[in-house]
Amino acid sequence: MKEVAASDICARVAELCMRACTVLPPDVVAAIEAARDREESPIGRDVLSRLLENAALAAEQGIPMCQDTGLAVVFVELGEDVRLTGGHLEAAIAEGVREGYEKGYLRKSVVRSPFDRRNTGDNTPPVIHTQVIPGASLEITVAAKGAGSENMSALRMMAPAGGIDAVKRLVLETVEKAGASACPPVVVGLGLGGSFEQCALIAKRALLRSLDDRNPDPAAADLEDELLALINATGIGPMGVGGRTTALAVKVGTAPCHIASLPVAVNLQCHAARHASYRWK
């Protein structure tokens, strides 16, 4: 049995919120650099250069790279042999989010209710997804999810008869409709299968993968390659100014599903693909 103090979780989560919003992960920086070098559109290339300049400035000066510092979406992998002391998991995470958004001068972008839309003032509550796994490890990932790309995402319960061709059409339609609103070049998280709610979560989790990894499922890997080429043929380009870089990557996640169902979730992520993790050993 391993013990972790709630106060430690709170402090780490606060730090993860601040880090995610100011430091773009190295795989994302590398993907934008590679895209800039490949981009044929002069204005598109220039936009990518500015985005890199923006990321460097944010990291160097410790200011957020984007004013939409997002809803804090927190992924927890909690080992069965971990015991929390001095508090509760979700409360400690919420306290960490509150502290991180205050200390980091991050924007408070959460309203308490869709009816009165009053700002909670501290960016809580976060959205927390917890997986319980064997062992004594604990890992927490904070993704700062901006609304620009989230609003342009889509979930559809498709008929299995449409097959993967219909899936491709939905992905392209979603990216085309989003255009510059989603802040391209985007990362596309594609969830296939599962149930209605599981499918959305698969798509969101796919966005946490390193942009340069290779999907171990050959069918999914092929679909990722094909969709990336199709999306980059739309011409939308960086921030919609035209060019070959509309997406940096497509990440596909799958799950078994009902014989009558083909749930498809397309979760768009803007170029500021912000997330940070900490693992307790």
Binding site: V47, R50, L51, E53, N54, L57, A58, Q61, I63, P64, M65, C66, Q67, D68, G148, A180, C183, M239, G240, C270, H271, A272
Partner: peptide, 9 residues
């Protein structure tokens, strides 16, 4: 249109 996601710059 301004440069989305370049808030620091």
């Amino acid at each position: 249109g301004a440069l989305g996601g370049a808030g620091a710059l």
